[in-house]
Amino acid sequence: MNDKRSARVVVVTSGKGGVGKTTSTAALGAALAQRGDKVVVIDFDVGLRNLDLVLGAERRVVFDLINVIHGVAKLPQALIRDKRLENLYLLPASQTRDKDALTEEGVAKVIAELRSKFDWIICDSPAGIERGATLAMRYADTAIVVTNPEVSSVRDSDRIIGLLDSKTDKAERGECVDKHLLITRYQPWRAARGEILTIDDVLEILSIPLVGIIPESEEVLRASNVGTPVTLNNASSAPARAYFDAARRLKGEEIPMHIPSDSRGILNKLFGRKAA
């Protein structure tokens, strides 16, 4: 590994569980690596790790983040290189310890060491607002707030935005974490019927810029079933394209936002089946 890089630290966070943080971390990490950037994804969900599983690396975990923090293993020993994407690495969480094994100094040291070796450090935050979540966002330059268009998710995202503005290293230095909204599990047919909050509703309430809209899709489920990020498993599917666009926006490109529309046929509409 050469040491000439200077990584951007991104936290993928939400407050609420089950909204798609781990899926999005895997998909965005892979999308950036597919475009040639060198990426490491870190699982901060100590005790309930899953990023290894979603990336199909669950049987290759030997050492983890806690081992590195406690000096049991060196960082290069704990990093797992993806078998399909040579630019993508995983630093797994410990499955046997609890979140108290994470220390602020330890996390700071690991991130500092990774910064010079990667272009992107993507931290997959656990749900909640406790230690694991606050440490995942602690050293972030950029935050991706993952939100479902649903009341409890939007409320929790608002709370997380408050924490990003007060409890991060950047906030304490008087700077601002660059925040982006990623709307996931968006169901256009429900939005059209007025059953769920619209994109505009969520944007108006949370008032942070939108980085992507990921449609609800069985492709996402299929990808996690086989342990492959959706951008790699089916690169032309709607969610994969949305993740590729989001990755390009993260890199600063300006591309028009594609709002998923109801693309089901008349029969599916009548029987209320989900679109792919």
Binding site: E150, V154, R155, D158, G194, D201
Partner: peptide, 14 residues
């Protein structure tokens, strides 16, 4: 749809 109710409740709460 019930979405407008959701939006209004959220705006007040937040």
């Amino acid at each position: 749809g019930t979405a407008p109710i959701a939006r209004e409740r959220l705006q007040i709460l937040l």
